[in-house]
Simulated scan of single mutants.
Amino acid sequence: MVAQGFTVDLNKPLVFQVGHLGESYQEWVHQPIVSKEGPRFFESDFWEFLTRTEWWVIPLIWLPIVSWFISKSIAMGHTLPHIALAVVVGVGIWTLLEYTLHRFLFHIKTKSYWGNTMHYLLHGCHHKHPMDGLRLVFPPAATAVLCLPLYNFVKLISTPSTAPALFGGGLLGYVVYDVTHYYLHHGQPTSEVPKNLKKYHLNHHFRIQNKGFGITSSIWDKVFGTLPTSKSAEKSR
């Protein structure tokens, strides 16, 4: 694609090219290329390796950590019902965070060189190459960096003994989110609920990209008015 005198070469590493698109970046990144083979991001093999993650790595790394945090609250004397409540609240908090990040950060409008570059790394690459199976989940190193401020925030809004279980619930919500996201792109659901969720998410990618920001649920889209209209509703207008 040519934009402002610049051509993106899909056969070369993309990350440091996309910034040159300027104001045309938003149009370019929302024209998906449906291929299971993802593009190369960097010349460096090391940095390229850090951008690729198998889906099963997420539960393998984070579920033991979830268990450790929850066990800390148990060791501090909380009963199982209290622990269960804290975990459920943590999962609920994650669903709101999932929606908020997707709507306001992942879909932020950019046009500067570094703005486009950072957006492409964060989420633009997923909209450009939505079937890239190795870039559907968040790299563990990046998640670990974000966990520290989030845990400190949880400690501010809860008691010392409740904070680990609450954070563990939030982290569990994240694991469910990332695994679900992968499944919605590459799984073949047969039951009604996952089939509808897959349809809902792919609608966000290929039809109405400025609505439908929920991944694991559409509840916050309903609450905040970003629920996409159905095709039948559009035809009846």
Score class of each variant (00 low, 15 high):
residue 32 P to N: 06
residue 92 G to Y: 00
residue 82 H to V: 14
residue 45 D to R: 13
residue 68 W to F: 15
residue 71 S to F: 10
residue 51 T to Q: 11
residue 90 G to V: 05
residue 32 P to M: 05
residue 8 V to F: 03
residue 26 Q to T: 12
residue 93 I to T: 08
residue 60 L to N: 02
residue 72 K to T: 08
residue 15 V to A: 07
residue 32 P to Y: 06
residue 59 P to G: 04
residue 90 G to D: 04
residue 42 F to H: 06
residue 73 S to P: 02
residue 61 I to G: 02
residue 58 I to T: 11
residue 36 K to E: 13
residue 47 W to A: 08
residue 17 Q to E: 01
residue 56 W to L: 13
residue 73 S to E: 12
residue 66 V to L: 04
residue 94 W to K: 02
residue 50 L to D: 07
residue 14 L to K: 06
residue 11 N to V: 10
residue 58 I to Y: 02
residue 76 M to V: 03
residue 21 L to N: 01
residue 93 I to R: 02
residue 23 E to S: 13
residue 95 T to F: 00
residue 55 W to G: 02
residue 69 F to S: 08
residue 53 T to Y: 03
residue 32 P to F: 05
residue 25 Y to F: 15
residue 65 I to S: 04
residue 22 G to F: 06
residue 83 I to A: 02
residue 95 T to A: 00
residue 10 L to E: 15
residue 65 I to D: 07
residue 43 E to F: 06
residue 95 T to V: 01
residue 88 V to E: 00
residue 10 L to Q: 10
residue 73 S to L: 07
residue 11 N to H: 13
residue 73 S to Y: 03
residue 8 V to Y: 02
residue 44 S to C: 05
residue 10 L to K: 05
residue 34 V to I: 12
residue 27 E to H: 08
residue 28 W to Y: 12
residue 7 T to K: 10
residue 86 A to S: 10
residue 69 F to D: 01
residue 53 T to S: 10
residue 75 A to P: 09
residue 20 H to T: 13
residue 40 R to A: 07
residue 14 L to Y: 03
residue 17 Q to C: 09
residue 64 P to M: 03
residue 18 V to Y: 03
